[in-house]
Design a protein around this nucleic acid. Structure first.
Lengths: 199, 199
DNA sequence: TTACCTTTGCTAACATCGTTAGGTAAAACT
DNA sequence: AGTTTTACCTAACGATGTTAGCAAAGGTAA
């Protein structure tokens, strides 16, 4: 229906349009039911034009996940500018990560492969470790007075990330029987507190 | 008399055969490439007979995940019989959970939805919370002398589970840059130690 | 103008998927 | 015997990701 009308409304960057539409569809119906044909329908072009801009469906998901990493990274950078004290900054990072996950569950699931195509096990994502690097900086700042070995510090970084990611996963997949999101956040806060106290 | 029983047995055999073959295929080629037709091929029957035993593909995956939960549960029960001291038992549970995940990654991924079809988001699986209940028992045993509130205890249970699940996820998805599985396990041990010390 | 060539977008197909309708022939029952 | 029930199959439907091949449009050069 839209093919003729479309020619009047001009194109503008088709690539970003495809991504925007794909994200929209994912938000509406979940990434599981995202299909090339639906995207084509939504941008009012035929199917093959999508393959002029993306190698395949996985490339679209990949690009979307990169957008997610970039968005998260921007938020973490803001924390960094706001807080000088490493402990405060670490707390802020945790909060930011948590909020990001629940305000953008589609992104989070795509980024960390929580219930989707096996697109995520991507080694070639540099942004992948952005969060780890941010908390690493903060943790090293807290810990630098102690005489922690390099390994110990590295371990702590993963441990911290794990608590957050694990809790988010469990809550997101409704494994938790705690319905109250306030409560869930409190579990997170408690864990962060215990972690910091133990540094 | 025996005829009817034989028929039931045969039907049961077919069902378990389908599940066994499905699991085998999953181990060989991963979740993403499991298909009804491949299963039919492997059991040397035509496609529709599978639908005589399972409502749909998701039901097969669901049943497989239940097998996973049952297997894990058996291992945790063994821990329970072996260790009376709640702290020792909690450590054993953590080790068991960790080993289960890496010895049966297909099961773990299916059970906790780590990179697959969105089949997992808990559909009234009673076995789903088996692990939580086991560690709950141990943690309550450790904590019962303290004057911890019920909420606090509940939080700690989720926190403990989160560390484990989060770390397993991160390692399984290769987000971690630690290659050495010994090292990864040490992160887990450290986290468990820190957690128990803080109880 | 005419002849070419590149771009742009389409239709139509291929192979695979989950799923189901409908048929056949043997087995079981009466 | 005749009737029903079981066991199983072929063939299809609709949806998927992906690609081959064509047609028109626009620019360039003679």
């Amino acid at each position: 229906m839209g093919i003729l009308e479309r020619k009047i409304r001009q194109k503008e960057n088709m690539r970003t349009n495809i991504l925007a539409v794909a994200l929209q569809l994912v938000k509406e119906e979940g990434w599981q039911s995202l299909s090339i044909r639906k995207i084509a329908d939504a941008i009012e072009y035929s199917v093959p034009v999508i393959y002029d801009h993306f190698e395949n469906k996985e490339a679209i998901l990949f690009e979307l996940s990169m957008d997610g990493f970039r968005l998260l990274d921007r938020l973490l950078e803001k924390d960094k500018r706001k807080y000088d004290d490493p402990e405060e900054r670490l707390r802020a990072h945790a909060e930011t990560y948590w909020n990001f996950a629940f305000k953008n569950p589609e992104y989070y699931q795509l980024m960390y492969g929580l219930g989707m195509p096996c697109s995520s096990p991507g080694k070639a994502k540099p942004e992948f470790n952005s969060f780890r690097e941010h908390i690493a900086e903060a943790i090293e700042g807290i810990v630098k007075d102690n005489k922690s070995s390099e390994d110990e510090t590295c371990f702590k970084i993963y441990a911290f990330w794990s608590v957050l990611h694990g809790l988010i996963s469990i809550v997101m997949m409704r494994c938790s029987d705690i319905d109250d999101s306030q409560m869930n956040k409190k579990v997170m806060d408690d864990s962060v507190n215990a972690f910091i106290k133990n540094l």
